[in-house]
Design a binder for these strands. Sequence first.
DNA 1: CAACATACCTTGACAGATGAGGTATCTATA
DNA 2: TATAGATACCTCATCTGTCAAGGTATGTTG
Lengths: 107, 107
Amino acid sequence: MSITSDLIRGHTDTIILAHLLEQDNYGYQINKVIMEKTDNRYELKEATLYTAFRRLEQSGFIRTYWGDETTGARRRYYAITEEGKATYQKYKGEWEEAKGLIDKLLK
Amino acid sequence: MSITSDLIRGHTDTIILAHLLEQDNYGYQINKVIMEKTDNRYELKEATLYTAFRRLEQSGFIRTYWGDETTGARRRYYAITEEGKATYQKYKGEWEEAKGLIDKLLK
DNA sequence: CAACATACCTTGACAGATGAGGTATCTATA
DNA sequence: TATAGATACCTCATCTGTCAAGGTATGTTG
């Protein structure tokens, strides 16, 4: 990974919510999609990922259900809630604002 | 402050180095300039600021000297070192990359 | 059958941010 | 001439997100 995680810190939840907006998915796959989208320049560590899932679920922003795989390892799926959708919009706006601020400060 | 600090977290050092590139300055003033530049939407907490100064100094990215105020409170000035300048360029590049990654992930 | 990939999970430790507290000086105002 | 507020510095304990390291279980491939 070429990007230190501290720079992404705080955006983990937003990134996960963004993916669940597109479709329900399970943890392992979400992480793979993130790596693909960033050309392997960024990956969430598993511990970080599952910590985030617990946090988001406790906040009511996502809900979870087990997949019905008859073969292979079990998969725990995550889905975004209505509250999660609203929160995503809020987080997205905050990111845009933070981005502007940092750009201004580093000019 | 309207921006949660976790979004800026990890950029504190870069922000401080950026200001010291322009000119030497002392802590209190640096914070004021940051507030002004962001129209009071972001301010570094004092504890955060001084923690960052210690960290940057220990890393050799800044050096410090006391001002020669004959009146008023003493001021500890900070100056960026050559190593600090190189580090700033590196951090700036990492910010640009991180920005691109997050934008891609939130699209 | 060994090695690897898939897929889930927990625990302890670390690092940056910060609330709350402190010291000292100068200035404006009542 | 008090006193409140601004300037200017600092420390410490605590919180939170990240992550290394460990674990479990199943399926696939050579």
